[in-house]
Design a binder for these strands. Structure first.
Lengths: 197, 197
DNA sequence: TATTTTTAATTGACTGGTCAATCAATAAAA
DNA sequence: TTTTATTGATTGACCAGTCAATTAAAAATA
């Protein structure tokens, strides 16, 4: 039984606590004590492991981002055909692990923070670029490059739009109708493409 | 020359200052002193006219909302034909008065706030409902009701998505490409509709 | 008209509370 | 004995909201 240092455990617990706190409050306006409390430690310990609050928040964002990245890669590996790759990316965006109220609230809050913090903006751009290139890997074989770019932009905007609009509703999210809306977009664009080329 | 009380003037100045401050900070995390400073008065005066900070923020949101409403009504009055009504709503969303960095930042911040504050959520829902019914007034004559609902949802999600993605970019917004993307969506949906009915 | 009185506009100074960040101290492992 | 883990207490800054005091305008009165 390999005894291991506390550091990684605490870091993980604190990051998850941060997501929970942000999800509950619905914004980044959470205190270190709150987060630490959820993680079951003192606020001093949170500072010990993360330094400043912003660092913890940035680490939290990174965590969300890498989780999404991991899910995305896995989904793509299981989808070799172009059309399926597009659907895979859409499905991941609204999968139960991503499209939860806490996660949605956190993403939203980070988008707002991105306006102030260049670091956050950079991170969000990484997400946007990755989504874009993943979508392109599915769309390029199906239509002219310029058109594919346009459709990828549309899909991305639709996804983000459905995320933000989710903030207006209460009750559990409805991933099925969200996916249906985006899939309908993709399908219609493909049909039009087939007809005009 | 009718001498008028200061109240309406100050209220307006403070609301505009609030938008400016929120736009500059990129979030609702602004102080009363900051806002009052921009308006050229003391923070005590801001409290005098608005009571609590939340009241000023809510008034600011209402102002944004009514401005958008006014622009929307004007645009609709000038567009009697169904197809034009849809374009009018899209155009208004990205018109120079709406699609400015400060305004976009403010809308975004209010979406986040809506997760916490039921009052804000109610206001945003008013906006969503109004946009939806305006879009429907244009779409209903052009396609079956169920389909129209779906397309209206898509347009709304696209608009909000393009707003939020605007937060990632720096430099002035590019309304033209945003409008083009949404119009392309509308056009494609209409074409598909015409073909399959 | 000149004067007093009332009302509106405005602020500086203050208060109480909150919170990030620090640090010295303690406990536990290695 | 050195390193790691952990906290309670504290500090310093910031900020929303209050209030008493001041000035300026309007209204009322002589």
């Amino acid at each position: 039984m390999p005894k291991v240092g506390m550091e990684p455990l605490r870091r993980k617990a604190l990051i998850e606590a941060a997501i929970a706190a942000i999800g509950a409050r619905g914004s980044l306006d959470v205190t270190m004590s709150e987060i630490a409390g959820i993680a079951g430690v003192s606020s001093a310990l949170a500072h010990h492991y993360f330094g400043a609050k912003d660092d913890l928040l940035e680490a939290t964002m990174r965590h969300l981002l890498s989780e999404l990245g991991r899910d995305g890669c896995a989904a793509l590996r299981a989808a070799p055909q172009p059309r399926a790759r597009v659907s895979a990316m859409v499905a991941v965006s609204f999968s139960p692990t991503q499209f939860r109220p806490e996660t949605v609230a956190a993403w939203l809050a980070f988008y707002v923070e991105a306006q102030r913090s260049p670091a956050m903006r950079r991170l969000l751009r990484v997400y946007a670029r990755r989504l874009h290139s993943n979508l392109m890997s599915g769309l390029r074989p199906l239509m002219p490059a310029l058109r594919a770019e346009r459709v990828a932009e549309g899909i991305a905007a639709l996804i983000d739009g459905l995320y933000i609009r989710r903030a207006l509703k209460d009750g559990p999210p409805d991933p099925r109708s969200a996916v249906a809306l985006v899939e309908d977009y993709v399908e219609t664009m493909l049909a039009t493409e087939a007809r005009t080329s």
